[in-house]
Simulated scan of single mutants.
Amino acid sequence: MADPAPYLVIAEELRGRIVGGDLAPGDRLPSVAELGREFSVSPSVGARAYSVLVQDGLVISRHGAGHYVRGPESPDLLVRQHRKRSEDSPFAQGAAEQGAVGTWRHESTTASADAGTSVRLGITEGDPVMRTEYVYLVDDVPVQLATSWEPIAVTGQSMIVLPEAGPYAGVGVAARMRVIGVDVGDPVERVQARMATRQEAQALGMVPAGPVLFIERTYYDQGTGRPVETADIVMRGDRWVSVYGQPPAS
Rank of each mutant, 00 (worst) to 15 (best):
S89M: 00
M130C: 05
L78N: 01
D238L: 04
L35M: 05
V19E: 15
R28I: 12
R28Q: 09
E12M: 10
V101C: 00
L121Q: 01
D22E: 13
L204S: 14
V154R: 10
V191W: 14
R176A: 11
R37M: 05
P163G: 05
R28S: 13
E38F: 12
V45A: 04
G36L: 06
L213M: 08
M1L: 14
Q199E: 12
F91D: 02
V9E: 13
F39H: 15
D27E: 13
P167I: 09
G172F: 02
V69K: 07
S89G: 08
V182F: 03
L204E: 15
V154P: 07
R239V: 03
E189I: 07
T147W: 10
V119H: 05
L78I: 12
T155K: 01
W149T: 10
L121N: 02
E73M: 02
S44P: 06
L53H: 03
E34Q: 04
S112F: 04
I123A: 00
P30L: 11
R176I: 11
T155L: 14
V182G: 04
E229P: 11
I215E: 13
G99V: 06
H82P: 00
P248D: 15
G170M: 03
S61Q: 06
E13F: 13
G122L: 04
L29C: 08
L53V: 04
Q202A: 15
E200S: 09
Y134W: 12
T155Q: 00
P75A: 03
A95M: 05
A100Y: 00
A11C: 05
D88A: 06
I18W: 15
G126A: 03
V161R: 14
L35F: 04
A100P: 02
T224I: 05
S31I: 11
D183Q: 12
Q192N: 08
A209D: 14
P30R: 11
E73Q: 08
G172L: 06
F91A: 00
G66W: 01
M130T: 13
P72S: 12
S108G: 06
D139L: 10
S86F: 00
S42L: 13
D27K: 06
T218W: 08
T197W: 06
M235V: 12
Q98D: 07
A201G: 06
P187E: 09
T224K: 01
P6S: 15
T224C: 03
P227A: 01
G122P: 10
A47M: 09
R83Q: 15
P142H: 08
S44V: 12
P163R: 04
D238I: 04
A249E: 10
Y244C: 03
I18R: 14
M195Y: 15
G126L: 08
